[in-house]
């Protein structure tokens, strides 16, 4: 079943529209259950309907193309010439970033930023210890002085700074 295999391989193609349609459906149903339905759904209903139709056409066209044996769906797009090749670094960057954001509320902006940048530099294989420590410290301090001191925008202060 070459068709099924192809579908599975390129199944990721549907990740984006599926997520979008899934959220749209959930949202539509949620709003439908609110009182005064017709006024709340004035815009949402037609937009959802259009999305649904577009999704169906997209999927059908793709399956049709596969059946007819034309294979490559995204052949027209060359935006995919920017690929994520460095999978490990990318994943680590993502994890570090999430940890950083949640860490800010705990440790405070300055310290978290310092740690985050230092860890990033280590991830990027920067060898010099001096740079790993000084550059982030300088940046974090600069932001602190500019925002907190000069512009009076208080940055989150956790248990530390």
């Amino acid at each position: 079943m070459d068709f099924m295999r192809q579908l599975g391989k390129k199944g990721g193609e549907f990740a984006v529209p599926s997520i979008m349609l899934a959220y749209a459906t959930y949202y539509y149903l949620e709003v439908s259950s609110l009182p005064r339905r017709e006024i709340n759904l004035l815009l949402i209903q037609p937009v959802y309907f259009v999305m649904l139709v577009a999704f169906v056409i997209l999927v059908s066209a793709y399956i049709y193309g596969l059946l007819v044996g034309r294979g490559a769906f995204a052949s027209g797009s060359d935006a995919a010439d920017r690929k994520i090749t460095n999978k490990i670094s990318t994943l680590s960057f993502a994890v570090l970033t999430v940890a950083y954001v949640f860490g800010i509320e705990w440790l405070g902006f300055v310290i978290s930023s310092w740690l985050y940048m230092a860890l990033l530099l280590m991830l990027f294989s920067v060898k010099s210890w001096l740079i790993i420590v000084i550059f982030p410290a300088g940046t974090a301090l600069f932001i602190y002085l500019t925002f907190d001191m000069w512009l009076s925008i208080p940055l989150p202060k956790g248990i530390l700074l």
């Binding site: 749209a24 949402i44 999305m51 577009a54």
Partner: peptide
């Protein structure tokens, strides 16, 4: 189609 779906999502 992709633009429509993305745009619709944004509007929602």
């Amino acid at each position: 189609l992709k633009a429509i779906i993305a745009g619709g999502f944004g509007v929602l």
